[in-house]
């Protein structure tokens, strides 16, 4: 994996939103790369900037109020920030596709799912209507829909949530993208269906060597369905690591606290108080000087409040981990 060039590389991304009370930075100096065939997870709570990061890659944020202030976005050697709207249109859907949380609102209710997949295919390919329809049916089969020949003529409201999300994935895959951006793709689904969709994404990734950027608030989803993870907090990356290393030895106090606050199945300590992270995430409009987690951190010291904490390497060179905490090595040992 590391011998290849990254498929997507994001460097120093800063995204601001204009508000009544001045501009706030929702994403502040975020950097990461994704390699072909890899799944990168971005995990964090609401407002941490994970979705804004994903939407910025395809420049899907409305400007204004949003604005990419700084940073570079390179995809397969091209600079996505400098592409014209028309050139970007060719990348969207064709090379980079996106799946959202709520499939009902992303499907058009007045067209059959087949018509919508055919449209997506023909936007990027010279296929005839008939060829595109055949392709749509085979895509629906590929995402595990058994009677695809019937479902292709169904309207979105006739399908269950799980089926709709499969249709969205089929549509996203229609042009064999190199990268799939999946923003909370299973959050609105029942637990049994959630497991199926995540398994499906992984098997598609393996069979087509597609890369996936999986955005989620659920650490246990990250644990089992990604290769590497970025943990975000209040607009910053606070930790990045391979998933096994992260769960074995979380480096940032926030990651550790998040892991501890999650009840585990068969965890044993039933009906006892769960460890919590007291307080709330600071508003982006009045971030504290220094570490953004300082008010909620049990290990805070004077130097944490002095200036912005840099992202530094953690653990062995081989682990290739980064953490934004002055006391990480000392606390994690």
């Amino acid at each position: 994996m590391s011998s290849e060039a990254p498929l997507l590389s994001v460097e120093g991304l800063c995204v601001a939103f204009r508000t009544e009370r001045g501009a706030v930075r929702a994403v502040d100096d975020v950097s990461f790369s994704i390699f072909p065939g890899e799944t990168l997870g971005i995990v964090g709570e609401s407002g941490c900037g994970k979705s804004v990061t994903a939407l910025s890659i395809l420049r899907l944020l409305p400007t204004p109020p949003a604005q990419i202030e700084d940073g570079s976005l390179h995809f397969g050697g091209r600079d996505l920030r400098t592409l014209s709207e028309r050139e970007l249109e060719a990348v969207r859907g064709d090379e980079i596709a996106m799946v959202f949380q709520e499939p009902m609102t992303s499907l058009n209710p007045v067209h059959t799912v087949g018509a919508q997949i055919v449209e997506a295919i023909r936007l990027h390919r010279p296929d005839s209507r008939r060829e595109a329809r055949t392709r749509a049916i085979s895509l629906l089969e590929r995402v595990g829909i058994r009677d695809a020949a019937t479902v292709v003529d169904a309207f979105p409201h006739e399908l269950s949530g799980g089926m709709r999300q499969r249709v969205m994935i089929a549509m996203a895959l229609s042009c064999e993208p190199k990268l799939l951006l999946a923003d909370e793709p299973t959050t609105a689904l029942d637990v049994t269906i959630q497991a199926q969709i995540l398994d499906l994404l992984q098997s598609l990734r393996r069979s087509s060597h597609m890369a996936i950027l999986l955005i989620t608030h659920d650490l246990s989803v990250v644990e089992h369905h990604t290769d590497r993870v970025l943990v975000m907090y209040a607009g910053e990356v606070v930790e990045s690591a391979r998933v096994g290393d992260l769960f074995r030895r979380p480096a940032h106090p926030y990651t550790r606290a998040l892991l501890a606050s999650m009840p585990r199945l068969g965890g044993g300590k039933r009906r006892t108080r769960l460890p919590t992270i007291e307080g709330v995430v600071p508003g982006l409009g009045n971030l504290p000087k220094g570490c953004r987690f300082q008010e909620r951190c049990g290990a805070v010291v004077e130097s944490c409040r002095a200036e912005r904490i840099p992202l530094t390497s953690f653990g062995t060179v081989e682990e290739n981990r980064m953490v934004r905490c002055l006391r990480a090595e000392e606390l994690a040992s």
Binding site: D218, T272, T276
Partner: peptide
């Protein structure tokens, strides 16, 4: 609710 807030509410209900 977010994970860290979930734990706070679960604890409150237990208390």
């Amino acid at each position: 609710l977010d994970v860290s807030i979930q734990a706070q509410i679960v604890n409150l209900l237990l208390d």
